[in-house]
């Protein structure tokens, strides 16, 4: 039995009265590549933010490696630093994810905040820029990047910390097919590294490449779970969750 990275028990969350998650229970084994599927507003982003320790449930429990995660834990530098290093989230909106003046600063931000040795950071950033093929963009401002470039910078800024859990919020949305392919290829290359990768997406056609398992969400609840092939074959599930149009 694989160990679970995350376990959610009856997790509910609301934004000032707007319910976003409604008694969600979910366990995510280590090393799994999980896709969160669902229509707009079903609560995917909210769930990812809860997994990343940014929001805390109104009720219910989130366990990380079997230990409940609370707001209080994050007041301690040691815990906060180790969690932030080990769990990384790439936000849906690049204008939120990329808040630094330049690409270089962006990629260096995480390591600097975690207090890594400064003489090592420059070399690490250079390496990450190389890996994501954005080295020539290093002095560019984010508003001078294309959508695909922004996404790669966003990935670099999170993956430079070499997290064991990677949370991706719609990494392929609003990209042209070539840029989508680049991102998917990158994601596939992490498969062998044993990382847990949780991806929120609507792109059904990429599903079997980016995920080994799918969770379908509908209006803040879990509507179904299964392998990509099972989920894609379940027309009723997809229709009910507004992922495909009825004829």
């Amino acid at each position: 039995m694989a160990l679970n990275v995350f376990e959610l028990e009856q997790v509910s969350f609301a934004y000032r009265g707007v319910v976003a998650l409604d008694k969600v229970s979910l366990s995510i084994p280590a090393g799994q590549r999980l896709a969160l599927l669902g229509a707009n507003g079903c609560g995917k982003s909210t769930l990812l933010r809860i997994l990343d320790g940014l929001y805390f449930p109104d009720s219910g429990i989130v366990k990380y490696h079997g230990v409940p995660l609370t707001e209080h834990d994050f007041e301690h530098d040691a815990f906060a630093h180790s969690f932030r290093k080990r769990v990384g989230l790439v936000f849906q909106n690049p204008d939120v994810q990329l808040f630094c003046p330049t690409v270089f600063d962006e990629v260096a931000f995480g390591p600097l905040q975690l207090g890594w040795p400064k003489d090592r950071i420059k070399a690490m950033v250079a390496e990450a820029l190389e890996y994501f093929e954005i080295a020539e963009l290093k002095d560019r401002a984010p508003h001078r990047l294309s959508g695909g470039e922004k996404k790669r910078v966003a990935l670099a800024s999170v993956l430079i910390m070499d997290p064991e859990v990677i949370l991706l919020d719609e990494p392929t949305a609003a990209l042209d097919p070539r840029s989508q392919r680049q991102i998917v290829d990158l994601m596939k290359s992490w498969e062998d590294l044993g990382k847990t990768i949780i991806t929120a997406t609507h792109d059904l056609h990429l599903l079997d490449e980016i995920a080994g398992e799918c969770v379908v969400m509908d209006k803040g609840r879990i509507a179904g779970r299964g392998s990509p092939a099972e989920v894609l074959a379940d027309e009723r599930l997809l229709l009910g969750a507004n992922l495909i149009l009825g004829r």
């Binding site: 933010r49 990343d52 940014l54 530098d77 906060a80 630093h81 932030r84 290093k85 990384g88 989230l89 936000f91 909106n93 204008d95 939120v96 994810q97 808040f99 260096a108 931000f109 995480g110 600097l112 905040q113 975690l114 207090g115 400064k118 950071i121 420059k122 800024s157 999170v158 910390m161």
Partner: peptide
């Protein structure tokens, strides 16, 4: 709205209120 989301994005990457910079 943007500023609270940016705040989360910063926190997610280890920001704790003090900004550090390269020398």
């Amino acid at each position: 709205e943007l500023s609270s989301d940016i705040h989360l994005a910063m926190q997610s990457r280890g920001y704790r209120g003090e900004v550090h910079a390269l020398d």
